[in-house]
Nucleic acid binder design. Sequence first.
DNA 1: TTGGTGTATAATGTATACAAAAAGCAACAG
DNA 2: CTGTTGCTTTTTGTATACATTATACACCAA
Lengths: 232, 232
Amino acid sequence: MDEQLQIDMDEFLPLRDVVFNTLRRAILTGQLKPGERLMEVHLANKLGVSRTPIREAIRKLELEGLVIMIPRRGAEVARITEKSLKDVLEVRRALDALSVELACDRITEEDMKRLLQACQDFEKAAKGKDASVIAKADVALHDIIVEATGNQRLAQLVNNLSEQMYRYRFVYIKEESKHDMLVAEHREIYESIASRDKERAARAAKLHIDNQEKSIIRQIRLENESRLNKQP
Amino acid sequence: MDEQLQIDMDEFLPLRDVVFNTLRRAILTGQLKPGERLMEVHLANKLGVSRTPIREAIRKLELEGLVIMIPRRGAEVARITEKSLKDVLEVRRALDALSVELACDRITEEDMKRLLQACQDFEKAAKGKDASVIAKADVALHDIIVEATGNQRLAQLVNNLSEQMYRYRFVYIKEESKHDMLVAEHREIYESIASRDKERAARAAKLHIDNQEKSIIRQIRLENESRLNKQP
DNA sequence: TTGGTGTATAATGTATACAAAAAGCAACAG
DNA sequence: CTGTTGCTTTTTGTATACATTATACACCAA
């Protein structure tokens, strides 16, 4: 944890929630690395609060699976294995398919227009080089779809699962050779929702995940290899 | 909260986890009713611990969606609406289908035997009248399937979603006229996994959920009506 | 009677104090 | 030189104290 954890005082929330969001973002962006210990007094000093809000935030991170508790030793950032990521993606594949299927049934004309706009925004972003702009456009597009399902629980779960892979988002976004493919995949999803073709939409959503999975798994293997080479 | 919350000291866990399990069970069994406030000092006295473990347990229940937090007012047991239950079931439908599909691919011969046994146990239980025995047999059967997927994340999510409906489990189990149908549905699921027929298994799992949904929604409407009649 | 205001009370939000256990380290014995 | 024992330090687990805010109830005025 070299960089400073910066607390976001903008929001007017109980400290535990501020701490929760802060730690969560730090973990998801890789600022707090897998295996790193979360020591309460240390974090408390760093964030300028007492141990109580820190502990309550850790309890929530624990249930989310972002940290694991070792009894009488404290919390550490959950290690991501290839298996755990495959598990997450397997579930996401099903839920993303469900999302587009439901969207076919329930999306409003208004949201359909927003989806088209988001698609075009993504194409524009993909032509540029700024990965974070592309990532934002990607999130915006997918958000419209899950919200169009009208199922809040589904939206919450999909968002949560997506965030588990936040650290690897840039992996497939940075492969510029794949940009055309991403654009095409999004367009296919849009087209199939527009034509209310559930089966085609589900196929497209699954393919989209499968391709991301390939990029991410490749990246993880690379990281593991270099890690193994460093400490044999 | 008329009955006594009884703490389970069997397990050797941090108090927060003991409290978490205790409160969780109380909510899921309906001992703590929707809308009921969870007051920290009260619970602390009741369970003979301080407020700290109570608060940490509530943070986890909050993330699970079993309680909702009202700022500066505290926690209350989440109210279940027809919409929220439909949302949960919609997701479960997809995840249960995924579970049986994965089970088709991955279940071992050993687990297949256990599944057959669980099926037979359920049939035996269904002949009796003890709802809690039937419920246990039902859970055991489904547990074997989700564990056979080898996907821990999926297992965790399915369990969590199932528990959201724990309070209504007895609704469809108590309808004795439906017992034969439940047995037949389980058998169909077993058969399709045995023949590794993913499509058929998915259909069977979805039908199983759909039928439960009907019973539960009917029950909720009944409860709502009687509630509305009482306080007009 | 009704509406509003003020105070008292009770609950949460946060901080801190204390206890117990684990980890690291040093010293000593073999 | 190595292994073990015991002490010290650090960290978690739990309890409690203090601050702040919301709620309820009573009282007063219109």
